[in-house]
Design a protein around this nucleic acid. Structure first.
Length: 322
DNA sequence: CGGTTTTGACCGGCGC
DNA sequence: GCGCCGGTCAAAACCG
């Protein structure tokens, strides 16, 4: 798929200025502000300010264009590298086509690697997923979709194996595995048997503060948080609610997000997010971005104010036209 | 009382 | 065939 399609999620910085700043009235519709100035007989200042705003708008537009071009170049480079990697893998798989080391070893490699390299899942898992995709193209649609997520738990919480992904899970087993002293918990989706998704959760052997969750299958029902968020329930918590480093890797999509840094005051979360996206599941990736941006924007008081100003401005324009 | 968690038993795959 | 191991089952306990 085209990675550049993700560019559709970029903000349109060329949008018309939605508000005019004024010391007395920080956020006011343009026409209302103008009327104030007219009343005060300060049309000259309004024109100067408008000119300054136009300059600022041009500057931001140019910056937006530069960033878009930069992102396009990065996407092209990424696609090129990905193709090279795929060619390399396909050559290797044709050479080493040994039938040995079957299912169990595949499972072990996927799970144990996840435990041992929880902080570096992106590379290891993406390589294994490429291996799977190159070897087992026909089996891909038969196997349940497997993905791994590592979450840094809260410092005070080193006993529970709870990954707050928003879904409801029912624990059906727990085991102490060979390579890891911490127990592995087995969960099924609470919507079972209609939803067959399973989850294995175990602490990383290297860093006990990291919980590695392995998901099998895909939910065939909407995310509970989407329903509950409208009712104001606090039951569903997303990964972003806790300072965490999140890596999601699977035979399909590979998403690596580093959210470990706390959001500094006055900075948007998206600026601290590093995302590495494999180009296999555009819908999931785009959905993630949309959700992430929506949550970020709805938390931003400036955005809310701008939106309110825009709506009120549009409303005033319409009422004037009537 | 219904749903969830806990935990020992059981099962099947795999290596030797 | 046996033992090891991961995964699952199911009864009891727990909880709201």
């Amino acid at each position: 798929m085209e990675f550049t399609s993700l560019l559709n999620n970029s903000f349109d910085l060329n949008a018309r200025p939605l508000r005019i700043y004024n010391e007395d009235h920080p956020i006011l519709p343009k026409q209302e502000v103008e009327s104030h100035f007219i009343e005060l007989g300060r049309n000259v200042h309004v024109k100067e300010e408008r000119g300054a705003l136009m300059e600022e708008l041009n500057r931001v537009s140019a910056e937006n264009k530069k960033l878009t071009e930069l992102l396009t170049v990065m996407c092209e480079n990424y696609t090129e590298l990905k193709n090279q990697l795929f060619e390399h893998k396909s050559k290797n798989s044709s050479v080493e086509n040994s039938p040995g080391s079957r299912k169990r070893k595949l499972q072990n490699s996927s799970i144990d690697n996840g435990n041992n390299e929880a902080t570096n899942i992106g590379s290891s898992e993406s390589s294994s997923s490429d291996e799977d995709s190159s070897k087992n193209h026909k089996e891909d649609h038969m196997k349940p979709k497997i993905s791994q997520v590592s979450v840094r738990s809260e410092a005070s919480d080193h006993t529970s194996l709870i990954v707050k992904d928003g879904y409801q899970w029912r624990k059906y087993g727990q085991k102490v595995t060979r390579n890891n002293p911490s127990p592995r918990a087995y969960f099924k989706c609470s919507f079972a048997p209609s939803c067959q998704v399973k989850k294995k959760v175990q602490r990383s052997i290297e860093d006990q503060s990291i919980i590695v969750a392995t998901y099998e299958g895909e939910h065939n029902h909407p995310h509970p948080s989407k329903v509950e968020s409208t009712s104001g329930s606090n039951r569903s918590l997303t990964l972003g609610s806790v300072p965490c480093s999140t890596s999601l890797a699977s035979s399909g999509p590979t998403i690596t997000l580093d959210l470990t840094k706390q959001k500094p005051p006055g900075h948007e979360e998206t600026r601290n997010s590093r995302s590495k996206v494999d180009a296999h599941a555009p819908e999931q990736i785009q959905q993630y971005f949309v959700e992430h941006m929506a949550s970020t924007l709805t938390k931003d008081p400036n955005f809310k104010a701008a939106l309110a100003a825009a709506i009120s401005g549009q409303f005033l324009q319409h009422t004037e036209n009537w």
